[in-house]
Write a protein that binds this DNA or RNA. Structure first.
Lengths: 230, 230
DNA sequence: CCAAAAGTGTTGCGGATACACCCATGG
DNA sequence: CCATGGGTGTATCCGCAACACTTTTGG
C-alpha cells in the first residue's frame, strides 16, 4: 500500500469593497495552468498541520496580518488532484479588512464567486465561507474581520458582506454588547462630509475565538437564560 | 521531503447502562501493547477518507448498525505515533443503543473515562464526545443514539448519558416536537411492573443529520423566531 | 384508593427583533 | 433650520425552563 502525500491549504478570507475575497495564486504550470489555487504546500516532516499552514502562509502574506486560523477538514477524493495521490487538510484563515498585506506577483485577492479555481479548491472556499457565516452568529469571530477599532456602522457593513443579508446596526450593537463581545473605547469618530452625529468607536474585548452562545437549548438545569458557559 | 502515511480512526460511541461507551481494541503488539486503540487503518489508494472509515468499520462492526459518521478533524503531531510519520483523520461514529453488534475477540465497548488508551486516541475520543454533546442541542442527532421507536423517558435517559447533566422529560419532548424532530407513532408502551400511565411511543422524523436550530442570532430580517432554515 | 409513571397547562424570564423617537453634526 | 447619520427607549414576540396539575395504569 503506497504512502500518500499530504498538503495543507488555506482559504484566507477578508472583506473589501463590501464583499468577501479569498487569497489565491495563479498557476503558471500544468496541471490547471492559469487557474487559481489556494496557498499551501506539502506537510513537512517535523510539523503538524497547524504549524505547517502558518509556515506556508508566511510565504504569501505577513503572518501578523492573519487574525485567526482554524481547521476545516480533510479533502481526500483520490482524483482531487492529478498525479501522486495527495490528501489535503484545509483551513479557514481571516485577515482584518484594514490590513493590506503585500502579496507576491502571482497572488491576488479574488471574489468568492470566481469559478476558475484549481482542482477542488472551490469546495474548500465554499466550506470556509459557510464556517465563517455560522461562527459569526455564535462566537466573537468578528474580531478577525474587523479593524482594531471601528464604528458600529462600519462593523455592520462587514457583517452584511460576510453573511450576505441585511443586518440592523441597532440590533448588532445590542447583541454584541450584551454578550460582552464589544466595548466602547470612549472615542468618537468624526462625521462624514454630509454631517451627522459622530459615531462612538468600539473594539472587541477579546481577539481570540470565544463561543458566546454556547448551546441554544438543553442547557444544564439552573442555567436559565445564561447563554455562554466559560 | 518524505511522504507520510495516512490513517483513518473512528471513535464509535454508543450508550449502554446509562453511560457513553467507545469501541476499542486491545493492542497485542508493541508499541503501546495492552493499551486500547480506536478502530481504523491505512487509507487505501482508491478511496477517500469517508469511504475508508466505513470500510475499516465494517471489519469491526456491522455497518448497518452505524447510524451516523462524520469527520472530526486531522491529528498530525509528528510524535503522535512512533515509527513512520502518520497523519490521522478522525471520525465520530454513532451506534444506536439497542444495536449490539458482534465484535472481534480483541474488541470491546469501554467507558469514555478509561485512561489506558493507545497513542493520542484519548484526544480523539474527547473530541468525539464534545462534538456529540454540541450537536445534540442544535441538530436532530439523537436519531443516531436512539432505537427506531422509543418513549420520551427512554430518550431522556440517552440525553442524560450523552450530555452528562439532568434533562427534563417535559422540556425535551416539547423542544423536539416543536422543532419537528420527533413524531408520535400512535402506539403506547405498556407500563412497567410498578404500574403507571402507559407512555406514548415516538420516532425521529428523519434519520439523517439535520440542523434544527440554525443560528441563534443575526438571522436574516423577517425570520423572527423562525429557528431553522431548511 | 394509593402509588407510580406519563403527559399537559400555565407562568415567568430573557434574548432578539422592529420601530419610533431623540441626539449631534455639517451645510 | 434642515438633512444626515448615530444612538436609545420601548413594545412585542417567542423559545425555553420550571412547576403544578391531570391522566392512566398496577397493586
Amino acid at each position: 500500500m503506497g504512502a500518500t502525500d499530504h498538503e495543507v491549504l488555506a482559504a484566507v478570507l477578508r472583506i473589501a469593497d463590501g464583499a468577501l475575497q479569498v487569497l489565491a495564486w495563479q498557476r503558471a504550470l500544468e496541471p490547471d495552468r492559469g487557474r487559481w489555487a489556494l496557498p499551501g504546500g506539502r506537510l513537512g516532516a517535523d510539523e503538524d498541520v497547524e504549524t505547517s499552514v502558518l509556515r506556508q502562509l508566511a510565504e504569501k502574506v505577513d503572518l501578523r496580518e492573519v487574525a485567526h486560523v482554524e481547521q476545516l477538514g480533510v479533502f481526500s477524493d483520490p482524483a482531487r488532484v492529478p498525479g501522486t495521490r495527495t490528501v489535503a487538510t484545509a483551513f479557514l484563515g481571516l485577515v482584518p479588512t484594514d490590513a493590506d498585506p503585500a502579496v507576491p506577483a502571482d497572488t491576488a485577492w479574488r471574489p468568492l464567486s470566481a469559478r476558475d479555481t484549481a482542482f477542488d479548491h472551490g469546495l474548500i472556499v465554499a466550506a470556509a465561507r459557510d464556517r465563517l457565516r455560522a461562527k459569526l452568529s455564535y462566537t466573537n469571530l468578528g474580531f478577525a474581520m474587523a479593524p482594531r477599532e471601528f464604528t458600529i456602522s462600519a462593523l455592520r457593513e462587514l457583517y452584511v458582506a460576510a453573511l450576505g443579508h441585511a443586518v440592523s446596526a441597532t440590533n448588532l450593537q445590542r447583541v454584541l454588547t450584551r454578550r460582552g463581545v464589544l466595548e466602547p473605547t470612549g472615542a468618537l469618530a468624526p462625521p462624514g462630509p454630509a454631517g451627522g452625529r459622530p459615531a462612538a468607536v468600539f473594539r472587541f474585548t477579546d481577539r481570540t475565538l470565544r463561543v458566546t452562545d454556547a448551546f441554544a437549548v438543553l442547557k444544564p438545569p439552573g442555567e436559565h437564560g445564561r447563554g455562554a458557559v466559560p
